[in-house]
Simulated assay, not measured.
Amino acid sequence: MQIIEHPILGEKSNEEVTFYFNNQPLKAKKGQTVAAALMANGIRKLGVSRKLFKARGVFCGNGRCMNCFVTIDGLDHVLSCTTLVEEGMKVFSNESDPGVRGEK
């Protein structure tokens, strides 16, 4: 879901950037959060919980619930809902404890 035109905010930029999620190239709109860009690409599962190994994703969307952690450019446990996507950004799902991921 993306807002293309808004009566108050005006027209949004359609400039695209390429980023990577688990080494898969994806497109995003410049100015989107990582969470919004992943959702726009059909990705809902951002990792698993450390204790119960249940799927985690976007819950509150404003950085309060800590449910949307991902690893961005080697930095573990970054909130995807408050971080803007950037060209060439490498995002990995959190499938385990910090420092243990499928990065190659």
Score class of each variant (00 low, 15 high):
residue 57 G to S: 09
residue 52 L to D: 13
residue 40 A to P: 03
residue 24 Q to T: 15
residue 40 A to V: 06
residue 4 I to G: 01
residue 5 E to N: 10
residue 48 V to L: 12
residue 46 L to P: 00
residue 57 G to T: 08
residue 19 F to S: 11
residue 60 C to M: 09
residue 51 K to L: 13
residue 44 R to K: 15
residue 21 F to K: 09
residue 45 K to V: 13
residue 36 A to L: 04
residue 12 K to T: 06
residue 64 R to I: 13
residue 60 C to A: 06
residue 28 A to Q: 05
residue 61 G to S: 08
residue 14 N to Y: 05
residue 8 I to Y: 01
residue 18 T to Q: 13
residue 47 G to A: 08
residue 4 I to R: 02
residue 19 F to M: 10
residue 45 K to R: 15
residue 22 N to E: 14
residue 57 G to P: 05
residue 48 V to I: 12
residue 22 N to A: 06
residue 36 A to I: 01
residue 27 K to G: 09
residue 28 A to T: 04
residue 50 R to G: 09
residue 55 A to Y: 05
residue 20 Y to Q: 06
residue 45 K to P: 00
residue 13 S to V: 02
residue 64 R to V: 14
residue 16 E to T: 14
residue 61 G to N: 08
residue 7 P to D: 03
residue 35 A to V: 09
residue 9 L to F: 10
residue 16 E to N: 08
residue 16 E to Y: 03
residue 61 G to K: 07
residue 25 P to T: 03
residue 61 G to P: 03
residue 9 L to W: 03
residue 54 K to E: 14
residue 46 L to C: 02
residue 57 G to M: 11
residue 15 E to A: 12
residue 60 C to L: 08
residue 4 I to Y: 01
residue 26 L to W: 12
residue 27 K to C: 04
residue 65 C to T: 02
residue 21 F to C: 07
residue 13 S to D: 15
residue 11 E to S: 12
residue 52 L to W: 11
residue 34 V to C: 10
residue 52 L to N: 13
residue 53 F to E: 15
residue 13 S to Q: 08
residue 57 G to Y: 09
residue 31 G to S: 07
residue 18 T to R: 06
residue 63 G to N: 04
residue 37 A to P: 13
residue 23 N to V: 03
residue 21 F to S: 07
residue 45 K to S: 12
residue 46 L to H: 03
residue 6 H to R: 02
residue 54 K to D: 11
residue 13 S to T: 12
residue 35 A to N: 07
